[in-house]
């Protein structure tokens, strides 16, 4: 499968709360508001992982959501990118050593998953948009590999 150049400019995003404190979710929503308006880059929030190109995970994976996170990852059609939103999703952050969590996302997803870390607690919307830029770089690399 060869990726077209315009693939970058039409990323559809699915947002999964894998156990966050909800602050990062609100920051994600703020990126689609008139102030930041990611739709100008063709980014759209979709309602099902089946339509998504990018998965946004917020929060450390807790025991209840582990299965769902893996299932949602598998349900997403290829090629896909995972964005790990927030300190607690990347490193467990403020939930460090909690009995309820199954560890940060990168220890659970398959090895070939491409992860992009967006840091902050909560993340800033600008930082999320910067993460999208990194997703573009990754897709460019993917294109280079397959040409």
């Amino acid at each position: 499968m060869k990726l077209s150049k315009t693939f970058d400019k039409s990323l559809w995003v699915f947002h999964v709360n894998s156990g966050s404190c909800n602050a990062c979710d609100i920051e994600i929503v703020s990126t689609v508001t008139p102030r930041y308006d990611v739709e100008r880059f063709g980014i759209e929030l979709v309602g099902t992982p089946r339509h998504a190109d990018v998965l946004l995970f917020t929060g450390p994976v807790i025991k209840k959501t582990k299965e769902r996170v893996l299932r949602i990852y598998e349900q997403t059609p290829d090629p896909k990118v995972v964005m790990v939103i927030g300190n607690c999703a990347g490193t467990t952050g403020v939930y460090y050593d909690s009995y309820a969590i199954e560890g940060p996302i990168d220890t659970l997803l398959p090895d070939d998953a491409h992860l992009i870390y967006v840091t902050g607690c909560p993340v800033r919307p600008e930082n999320i948009i910067n993460g999208v830029k990194e997703a573009w770089l990754y897709l460019e690399k993917l294109r280079g590999d397959q040409v």
């Binding site: 499968m1 060869k2 990726l3 077209s4 315009t6 693939f7 400019k9 039409s10 308006d37 739709e39 100008r40 880059f41 063709g42 190109d53 059609p77 290829d78 090629p79």
Partner: peptide, 18 residues
């Protein structure tokens, strides 16, 4: 808002997806 040609890009992307 997205550029006018955005739907073309969306369709092109959807056709290359799994």
């Amino acid at each position: 808002g997205p550029p006018i040609i955005q739907p073309f890009r969306d369709v092109r992307k959807l056709l290359t997806k799994e």
